[in-house]
Design a protein around this nucleic acid. Structure first.
Lengths: 332, 332
DNA sequence: GTGAAAGCGCTAACAA
DNA sequence: TTGTTAGCGCTTTCAC
């Protein structure tokens, strides 16, 4: 394919018209006679001409490419959002370049390579407040924050309704009759954690259950941290009879710790997760969880992104997805 | 950032030299006097100049971008390979555009949009033989097949040593004393399935165990298919005492089906998986599995890709990763 | 409805 | 060591 590709010149020569006319045809401009158009299309087909995307970018000054920076690409929740966003932007003629930026430094480096070099014209940032990376966000590039509350003036944002997720999870446990409901949180710096925690508090308040600081243990989303959280909870003056784990991985760790300590779930302890990760139904006992629609979140991020790229003057928009569903549909 | 960016012209004007000299400095050409170089660098810093990547691509005729087409982006095994490849190509100054192509049609469409438009100069194809997509692969583009045996003359390929994985898994079960060892496979069209199956046969042969067609059940990698496979095995004349599931998801489905049918694992049935997915250790009972190093696979794919992009005359190279390890390192 | 000219921002090839 | 001249392949004025 390399250098010997068919160009617009070749097509023009073959069709006996100017390059402009070819350009008009491939761009669907109205002002081409149907005769010429047919001619040109024949020439295009005969030569197997494909417009060169880079040249078009160059001439138009728009790359139609979006940088998508996530702490990693393997976490199921991130990957699902990326997959949803990728398909959605592609449907609108855009492209997503997704990269893993595990640290703020990596993030900054990527910004340089992808954004400052004008290789991408938009930026999707996952979990901007999980660490210090938000400090490096360029002020003058269309940006969508994913999984964050609207904190930066200029960027749009999309997040699940995590308050609602927290409420649903807590309400479910309270409805089972539990009065001592603990929660294992994500890192407290993250908006997501704060919101799920808010939902938890709201439901406790509504049930007139006094707040007990021993019932809130900070984790880091990992199964290991869930495991350790249960061990810690076991040492508290009042052992909870139910735990709202703020994500499924920690819930799984809690289930395992419960098994290891001879606690029977759900007889002695109820556990509730959030996310509905794959195989959630296959744990023992099956994970009860609040489903989040990550693909929808990706699609929404795509929409916001395209909106602010196509209309830079548009006000930032902030979306909360109100779609947490419980119970998560059963899987075998 | 839009149209008002600083260009090489501005820097040239400010430094009082030609654009060419600026180009030489930013490309690290030797033939620039250290005095001019310092001057230019000062001008670059003063103006905050960043070379425009698209213009460089245009002038050099190389996009340095690789299209990575996978059936999806969420499957842990794919995502891990992508993550490894993405970081590796980036380290070499390349970029990965990863897209999900669930069907051959989607695959073909993506080829058009990404490859024929000269937007990308290399192609990584995951599981090319899982369906008919390999028929659409362009013959004249540097290509690396991921998770496939070398079947296309022109492309390089990288795969795990799946024969070895099959041997390890089967050997483990045989070493436990089992004589009736079944296997639940992936789709038979996939090389990976065939290879793991070959490893299985080899070990049976070595143990002088007669081949029993009832002991081979085809699945589709999903937990559901594992579940159903066990139900099917239960109806066979001889019930196996051990099952080699060709991936962890199916193994999890088997574990669940065993629980549901009152079979005690591992007392009445041993189960072995492959992949070492996250949380493998958290199933009940914990999953015994053969670890695969997917990140390494991604890095290797990156190396092969870059090699054949930088030297189109190079012979295709075919890599088998010999790193299946058992037991998989324990996780909490 | 069509074509000519100019240029996107950079680099390659040649001169000086 | 440096500058000049031509592009890369396309789109975008603006004529005609």
């Amino acid at each position: 394919m390399g250098r010997s590709r068919v160009t617009i010149r070749d097509v023009a020569a073959r069709a006996g018209v100017s390059r402009q006319t070819i350009s008009r045809v491939i761009n669907g401009s109205a002002s081409v006679s149907s005769e010429t158009e047919a001619n040109v299309k024949a020439a295009i087909a005969a030569l197997g001409y494909q417009p060169n995307a880079i040249a078009r970018i160059m001439a138009r000054g728009r790359t139609h490419t979006i940088a998508c920076l996530s702490p990693n690409l393997t976490d199921y929740t991130f990957a699902s959002v990326i997959e949803g966003a990728e398909a959605a932007v592609r449907g609108e003629g855009y492209f997503l370049m997704s990269s893993s930026a595990p640290t703020p430094d990596a993030f900054r480096e990527l910004l340089n390579v992808l954004v400052s070099s004008a290789r991408t014209e938009g930026l999707m940032v996952f979990n901007p407040f999980a660490d210090e990376r938000h400090r490096f966000m360029p002020p003058d590039v269309p940006t969508v924050l994913v999984g964050a509350r609207p904190r930066m003036g200029i960027a749009s944002s999309v997040a699940q309704d995590d308050v609602e997720a927290g409420r649903i999870a807590t309400a479910h446990l309270l409805a089972l009759g539990h009065r001592h409901v603990a929660t294992v949180t994500g890192p407290l710096a993250e908006d997501c954690t704060q919101d799920r925690l808010a939902g938890y508090y709201q439901m406790l308040l509504q049930s007139r259950i006094a707040y007990d600081p021993d019932m809130v243990v900070q984790g880091d989303w990992s199964a290991k941290s869930g495991y350790e959280a249960l061990l810690k909870l076991r040492t508290s003056p009042v052992m909870p009879t139910a735990i709202f784990a703020q994500n499924d991985q920690m819930a799984v760790g809690i289930l395992r710790a419960a098994r290891d300590s001879g606690l029977e779930v759900p007889v002695q302890l109820s556990v509730m997760g959030v996310d509905d990760i794959p195989l959630a139904a296959h744990f023992e006992p099956p994970l009860t969880t609040v489903r989040q629609d990550f693909a929808a979140m990706g699609r929404e991020a795509a929409r916001l992104m395209i909106r602010c790229m196509e209309d830079p003057a548009a006000e930032p928009e902030h979306v909360r997805l109100r779609r947490s569903t419980y119970p998560a549909p059963a899987a075998v």
